[in-house]
């Protein structure tokens, strides 16, 4: 099993994981599930970086993974605060319920 095959298969797994997250964002209408699917997508992107870094034996892939981790943490903090705000206001977590913003 050569390293190149491992790279290809690892990237395939990462892209399937990304597509699963994308399907979640597109199909689900619950804002909580959409945020969760975005987390899955970010995780898949980080996985691609780590796998590519492991293929060439460089630490840069893991460094990029740490930056994606930081971004996911900041995104989820703001996203969940907005989610709580929306749920308090419209008593619902349906994404379509807040599609009409009125300033």
């Amino acid at each position: 099993m050569s390293a190149g095959v491992l790279l290809g298969h690892g990237l395939a797994v990462a892209s399937i994981l990304f597509v699963i997250g994308l399907i979640g964002v597109l199909v689900r209408r619950n804002l909580l599930f959409q945020l969760l699917s975005i987390e899955i997508m970010l995780n898949a992107a980080g996985m691609a970086f780590v796998i590519a870094g492991a293929r060439w034996g460089q630490a840069d892939g893991q460094v990029m993974f740490i930056f994606i981790l930081v971004m996911a943490a900041a995104e989820v903090a703001v996203g969940l605060a907005l989610l709580l705000r929306v749920s308090r206001r419209v008593r619902d977590l349906d994404g379509d319920a807040v599609s009409a913003m009125r300033g």
């Binding site: 909580l32 780590v50 892939g61 893991q62 740490i66 996911a72």
Partner: peptide, 27 residues
């Protein structure tokens, strides 16, 4: 576990500590 098997143990530990341990607990 995938990270560990491909030789990135630090990323695997961060995955558990930050993703599963902090972000999902926030959820």
């Amino acid at each position: 576990v995938v990270f560990f098997t491909i030789g990135a143990p630090f990323a695997g530990a961060l995955e558990i500590i930050v993703y599963a341990g902090a972000i999902i607990v926030l959820f």
